[in-house]
Amino acid sequence: MATKVKREIDVGEAVGILAAQSIGEPGTQMTMRTFHYAGVAEQVPTGLPRLIELVDAKKEPKKPLMDIYLSPEYAKDPKKARTIADDLECTILSQVAEISEDFVEKKIDIVLDEKNLEFEGLTVEDVKKTIKAAGGTVTSSGNRVAVKPNTTSLRLIRRLTNKLKGMHLKGVEKIKRAAIIEAKDGIFIRTYGSNIAEVMKDPRVDAKRVFTNDVKEVERVLGIEAARNTIIRETKQVLDLQGLNVDVRHIMLLADAMCMDGAVKSVGRHGLSGEKAGVLARAAFEETIKHLITAAVKADDDKLIGVTENIIVGQTVPVGTGTVRLKFKH
């Protein structure tokens, strides 16, 4: 009980500022360190760039990644895990075939690479079936397939070509690569590309332990609570990786603020700060004139609730010692 009371936050504590400073101060050191790594190729953004990505609530991270843990049966055996990984990796037509357009004959030539097909565990017949699904008249001889579109419009032919190039042959869509990582707590698969909805359907996967770094995807598939946890987990990970010790509760507050009204919002003009209650507070942040004019058109009131507004006006700030008010009763 004693610890519980001790750990409780006092009334009027400026938790937002504290969280911002607690994340921001070590963040400045992070900037100085990460930019020394510039030039290392093919890296998942870490450090400040990643932190910015999270806080900005980007639609898709620069490098979507998934960590997939497996059901007990597969979690011990790397070979079995490998089969899952191979099944997850997605293959598209352009990876196994040479696709060229013939605008004179108004057709599309596809030359399948049998070696690649074998490597991917596909047969020419499988691929032909998929190609047929795309539409057009399909004729084939051996590993050569010709598609005669139903149209003569060059633009539509090009559209069909692009569709064919991206035809999904096997595996889970969007998963570009899958690798097996043997960790202390069992084997897991790390994939480049993220698609939790599909991966979780696989019975060989431990559906409760499928992680992605794509916050928006989590929000879409699993809901806002899961998205909040993802933000916390990812942010914490970035900071831990840099050896920065930030109390989780600061990060939790940040995540709470971002997920407060049921959808993940970014921190900034288009999200949190842009939706502050006070006209003056918004005007003080960015796009001053826009906020003033819309406020004038709508005849908005500023109730002087927030910190910024009160500083502008020259009053005490409703935080800390400023939370105390005198009340008279007549």
Partner: peptide, 24 residues
């Protein structure tokens, strides 16, 4: 510096700096 006073909750001190000692 302002943020620090807010973070500390020193509301009165902040008002003194920003208003009374400045352009009241």
């Amino acid at each position: 510096e302002r943020d620090c006073l807010i973070g500390y909750g020193a509301s009165m001190l902040l008002r003194e700096r920003l208003l009374e000692e400045s352009d009241r």
